[in-house]
Simulated scan of single mutants.
Amino acid sequence: MNNCLFPSEYVRIFLEGEDIPIITLSSLQKMEERLPSHFTRVHRSYIIDLHKITEVSRLRIIFDKNTYIPVGDNYKEKFTEYISELSLS
């Protein structure tokens, strides 16, 4: 989808098992404030459900063979801490 069609006030929400995202008039910052703690921002364009991660490789989060997203520079430290805590558990 072309990002020009959706100004920054719109958020696309991808649900597991659904092909078409839900589009809502909001901001990622507002969504981040409302979501439970197992959702976290990992990129200026992405908030993820930490429970759905299957693999992390070279700071790319992999959900399945066709779905992966990058970890943004501003979010690397927080995300790396989360992964380290999992490894110690």
Rank of each mutant, 00 (worst) to 15 (best):
F79K: 04
L88I: 06
E33L: 10
S8T: 05
N66H: 11
G17K: 08
N74V: 00
K76Y: 02
D73S: 15
D73V: 10
L25W: 03
R12T: 01
E55H: 13
S27N: 12
N2F: 06
T80M: 10
I48T: 01
Y10V: 10
V11G: 08
K65L: 09
I69F: 05
K30T: 11
S26Q: 04
E9H: 10
H43T: 09
K52S: 12
M1A: 15
Y46N: 04
N2L: 10
V11T: 11
D64G: 10
T67R: 13
N2G: 15
F14S: 09
M31G: 01
G17F: 08
K78T: 13
E9F: 08
P7G: 14
E32S: 14
L5P: 03
K30H: 09
E77S: 14
S45Q: 09
G17R: 10
T24M: 07
Y68Q: 15
Q29K: 15
S89C: 07
Y46V: 01
F39M: 04
T54A: 04
D49N: 15
H43V: 06
I13T: 07
G72P: 02
I23Q: 04
Q29I: 07
T24L: 07
L86T: 02
L59M: 11
E33F: 05
N74Q: 10
D19W: 00
V42C: 10
K65G: 03
Y75P: 05
L88H: 10
D19G: 02
V56R: 01
G72V: 02
I23G: 06
N3V: 11
P36E: 09
P70E: 12
G17T: 06
I69A: 03
C4N: 15
H43Q: 07
S37V: 10
S8V: 02
R60I: 00
F79P: 09
H43W: 05
E9I: 04
D49H: 02
E85Y: 05
I23R: 03
H43M: 10
K65R: 13
F79S: 11
L35K: 13
E16W: 03
L35G: 13
E9Q: 11
C4L: 14
S87Y: 05
Y10G: 09
E16Y: 05
L28I: 04
P36G: 11
I83A: 11
I83T: 12
E33G: 03
D49S: 06
P21Q: 02
D64Q: 07
E85Q: 15
S8Q: 07
I47H: 01
L25Q: 08
L59N: 12
M1D: 08
N2P: 00
T67V: 12
E81C: 10
R34M: 15
Y82H: 13
E16F: 03
E32D: 13
K65F: 01
Q29D: 06
N3S: 13
V71R: 07
R60H: 14
V42D: 02
L88C: 04
K65N: 12
Y10D: 07
L25H: 07
M1C: 07
P21A: 07
T24R: 06
P36L: 08
Y46C: 01
H43Y: 08
D49A: 06
F14I: 02
F63G: 05
F14V: 03
S87Q: 13
L35Y: 09
K78Q: 14
L25P: 00
H43I: 06
T80G: 00
I47G: 01
